[in-house]
Design a protein around this nucleic acid. Structure first.
Length: 211
DNA sequence: GCGACAG
DNA sequence: ATCTTGTCGC
């Protein structure tokens, strides 16, 4: 599927925050359809990527040079993204694609999209079908500037998106009941930005935030 | 200054 | 996210 390229990704912290502020204004918070047929789910995993010199004699030196171990270490990482598309009605998998690549942007709470979006979009570009909605392991608007990774990706793909995170980034909520289906509102300054939902018994609830 | 902090 | 080590509950 196609996506919009509204801005560069290799930017400074300050610039990234500016971009988020600009994009946040175009987030639409309303249900645009009620009978979604296809849904795409995406996630990313990664591994440290070391320079071939690391661990070699260059890093085994003693004395003065040994204090510079990190100088020869490449701090980038190899990322692997996957996107799967399901038909909701039948829960049949329609497609599954992957993409990989190096990433240099560090993990900074609130700027996760600048770390994971490029590789995610590379994977989404390989999807042949046209999902009606996408869901990501990240926050939507439950974010310091109202534009988490799920919202950001939704904008670039031009699709409704759902953020489904395993832990909280921002917001307050009451303890969630133990039974499946129990949930609490996730609020930021009295504004409901999501819900903390118990999807399984004896399992931590997940943080759903609106697209 | 201190604590929080998606993945 | 990934990795390691230790503790707790069934």
């Amino acid at each position: 599927m196609k996506y919009l390229k509204l801005h560069p990704w290799n930017v400074s912290y300050k610039k990234a925050v500016e971009i988020q502020g600009r994009l946040e204004k175009s987030i639409v918070l309303k249900c645009v359809a009620k009978n979604f047929r296809y849904i795409a789910g995406a996630d990313v995993s990664y591994l440290p990527l070391r320079t071939i010199q690391s661990g070699s004699r260059q890093n085994q030196c003693i004395g003065k040079t040994s204090r510079r171990r990190s100088a020869g270490i490449n701090k980038s990482e190899m990322f692997y993204a996957s996107v799967v598309v399901f038909e909701l009605k039948s829960m049949e998998m329609i497609e599954a694609v992957t993409a990989s690549g190096k990433v240099d942007f560090p993990y900074i709470p609130g700027l996760l999209s600048f770390r994971e979006s490029p590789i995610l979009l590379k994977a989404f570009a390989r999807i042949k079908s046209n999902p009606d909605v996408v869901i990501l392991d990240a926050q939507g608007i439950a974010h310091p500037r109202g534009i988490g990774l799920a919202s950001h990706i939704g904008l670039l793909l031009g699709k409704p998106s759902i953020g489904c995170a395993k832990t909280r980034l921002i917001g307050d909520y009451n303890e969630v009941g133990e039974e499946v289906g129990c949930y609490s509102h996730l609020t930021v300054q009295d504004k409901v930005v999501g819900a903390v939902l118990r999807t399984r018994k004896n399992v931590k609830p997940v943080f759903f935030s609106r697209p």
